[in-house]
Amino acid sequence: MSFLHVDDLHVHFVTDRGSVRAVNGMHFRLERGETLGIVGESGSGKSVTAMAIMGLLPMPPAVIPSGRILYEGHDLLTHTAAKRRSIRGNRVSMIFQDPMTSLNPFLRVSRQLTEVLEVHKGLSRKDALRRVIAMLERVGIPSAAQRVHSYPHEFSGGMRQRVMIAMSLLCEPDLLIADEPTTALDVTIQAQILELLNELKHERGMATILITHDLGVVAGATDNVVVMYGGQRMEHSSTANVFRSPCHPYTQGLLKSVPRLGRTGERDKLYCIPGLPPVLTASAKGCPFAERCDRVQAVCSEEMPGDTSQEPGHEVYCHAHATEAAS
C-alpha cells in the first residue's frame, strides 16, 4: 500500500459553454520521505490535481466523474466534509502559490497561525503562540517573537512566503503539497526555501508534492516527476530518467527550450515548441499535444495513447515513441 495513491483521477468543470476536462486520468503513487514533482504549463491540470487532493475544489462547477485518492489506503473522495477538514491542514497541508493573496490582510500573523493549532491540536492560545514563534524561527524569520504580531503587509514577499510555509508545517503534516512555492520569489530566496523543504523532508520523512513549471527546481528537489500537458500525463519516471533520457516529444521540447547557463560560443536560437496551449473542451480527442508535436502521426489526433514504454518505471504516453521503439 502506498502512502498516497492517486488512481485514474478525472476532474471536469461544467460551465454554460460545455464542460472542460481539466484533469484526465491522473495517476501516481507517493511514499513517505519522497518528493514528487508535477511539471506543466498553465492549464495543464497540475494545480487542479493538488486542489482535488486537498478537497478544495469548488463543486459545482467541478465534478470528479471517476477516480480515487487513496491516503493510507482510505479514499479521501468518500470522506465526509468533517472528516476531510480534520485531515486538511493537520496531516495534509498546502503551500499556495501566491503569498500576497493567501493570507488574510485584516488579521495579525499571530492570529492566523495560532488558529491552526487551536483548531487541530486543541492547544490554548498561549501554547499555540509559543509553537508558532518556534516555527517562524525555524523557517528563518528574524526576531520572530516580535514580528509574529505584525500584519501580512508588513512582511516582504519572501517573508510572507515563509509565513505561509510555517503555517503549513505547524501541525507537522505527513504530506505537503507545495504549489509553485517559489515562483513569486527571487532566486536567492528560492534557494533558501528549497533548502528548508529538503531539510524537513529528511528530518521528518514528510512526503512532498512539488508543483512547478521550473525545470531547474524539479531537477534539484525531486525524486520522481510527472510531466503533464492538457490534463494528461505525458511522461512519468524518476527525475534522473526524465532529464537523462526524456522520451516524450513534449518533455524533450520543454528541456530544449529553456535557456541554460554557460551557453557555448555563438548566440543560438532557442528551441521553440510551436503553437499555443490547448483548449480542453469535452469534444477534444486524441493526444492534447498533437497540434504542437513535431513527431505527430495520423493516429495522434484520434486516440490518446496508453503507456508506450518498454522500460519498467518509465511511463511514456506517445504513439511516436511506440513506433520508434518498435522499428
Partner: peptide, 8 residues
C-alpha cells in the same frame, strides 16, 4: 542560486 535543469 539559479537551479539548473539537470539532476546530476
Amino acid at each position: 542560486a539559479i537551479p539548473i535543469p539537470d539532476p546530476e
